[in-house]
Design a protein around this nucleic acid. Structure first.
Lengths: 231, 231
DNA sequence: ATTTATTTTTGCAGGGTCTGCATTTTTGCG
DNA sequence: CGCAAAAATGCAGACCCTGCAAAAATAAAT
């Protein structure tokens, strides 16, 4: 009875999505204007046309509004990992899944660039963003474990994508390899984005992304000298 | 004229160190007793015998007191990277540097285990801890770049280990590879600690650590099935 | 169309975090 | 001892965040 996939749903769902988006947009815009530190929840809520209290109905904390771009990406990545062609290695499957998702996101490139800008100037928020990623990490690790057919025997079949036991139990059921893969994958994406973001547009993001995963797949050897730093 | 290395310094320095340590210890103890969320700054300060205001003279935020264990580790790791035998690959050098530092820390195993316990139950703080690590990441990446003799041409020789330009400039001067290596290294340590921490003492940490870096050096291939999850 | 039930928004009280500033206490030293 | 620098403290104030209950909006049923 719930279809939160696309832009479907009753008026209620639509308004909630709109309010959420309005809050995020107001937050980012105000942050670009006055600096992240000087943006109060009151200001964000006012700019979005809701009460301060309502803000906290949508976000658990002030910072969260700045890191909630692409919050549903992790689900799609997880699914893509499970759906990837079986002949791919785990790392390749992860790379393809993330690449696909990033391709989807490219359409909102403006928003992402703005966000990258904001986050780069606020290491504290970047930390929080990593925190958000880490929640994903656990689910991603489970998906990877499920894909390689071992390491998560408890929930291999009957897991309904929800109703999972607490994190404690889930973590214990995972092997080192899936967790490492998930964590390193997330880190690689972060580094790729940061590196690309810091040289604004000098090189297509896809190139940076590919190079990053090549490093990983090669075992992070010292790469041959190349024209890395431009002219 | 400053020797902050060992237990030197005048009475002032010693008292400051003592107060700092008292705050950390009080915080961790209270966290183990009542749960991190229920520990207020007031309680920590009271337990340490100082005023609430003084707490904020020592830590920028409440959370920081929980993540400030081993704050000086990053410096030592950086130095160790630069001092590592030149025949080691960058990844090996990083592994050795971290392993050495972790060995140093093993003496405080009690405190670390307590901390790991506290942090494991507070993902939010773990995120903050990663944030603290990420400040290190930049410095570590610079050290790695310097070690491989390129990628940080601006500060290869004249950098006095302080007085660096703002992060913006420092980031631009770095290649993708050193940054990736630093970030992945930090992530690997985190995963190793978490994995080891979640199976309390079932296996020595050194083994988990070594296995983690073997995965990385091999390019994260699907490892052959092994007795990973025990019987 | 009106009523009813559910969801969402909102105001408000209250506790906790954190900062700036002025004051007091402590420390270092001649 | 007496003086200057550093640290600790109290206090006011802004902001963050959470229950709780009332009010408004929406969905569903009659």
């Amino acid at each position: 009875m719930e279809e939160k996939a696309a832009a479907e749903g009753g008026l209620r769902e639509r308004k909630k999505r709109a309010t959420r988006a309005a809050l995020v947009e107001a937050a980012v815009r105000l942050a670009m204007e006055h600096g992240v530190e000087h943006v109060t929840v009151d200001a964000i809520a006012a700019a979005a046309g809701v009460s301060t209290r309502t803000f906290f109905n949508y976000f658990d904390s002030r910072d969260e509004v700045f890191v909630m771009v692409g919050a549903d990406s992790s689900d799609r990545v997880r699914r893509a990992v499970l759906a990837a062609p079986p002949e791919l290695s785990p790392l390749e499957a992860l790379r393809e899944a993330i690449a696909t998702e990033l391709g989807e996101v490219e359409q909102q490139q403006e928003l992402w660039r703005l966000h990258a800008e904001v986050l780069r100037k606020a290491p504290q928020l970047l930390a929080r963003r990593i925190g958000a990623h880490m929640a994903d990490e656990l689910g991603l690790a489970e998906a990877l474990a499920e894909r390689i057919g071992r390491g998560s025997p408890l929930f291999a079949e009957d897991r309904p994508a929800f109703a999972s036991p607490d994190d404690e139990v889930r973590r214990r059921a995972l092997g080192l390899y899936p967790r490492l893969l998930a964590a390193v994958g997330g880190t690689a994406v972060r580094v790729a984005i940061e590196h690309w973001s810091v040289r604004e547009g000098e090189v297509p993001f896809a190139d940076v992304f590919r190079e990053t995963f090549e490093h990983l797949a090669a075992g992070l050897p010292l790469p041959p000298a190349q024209a890395d730093d431009g002219h």
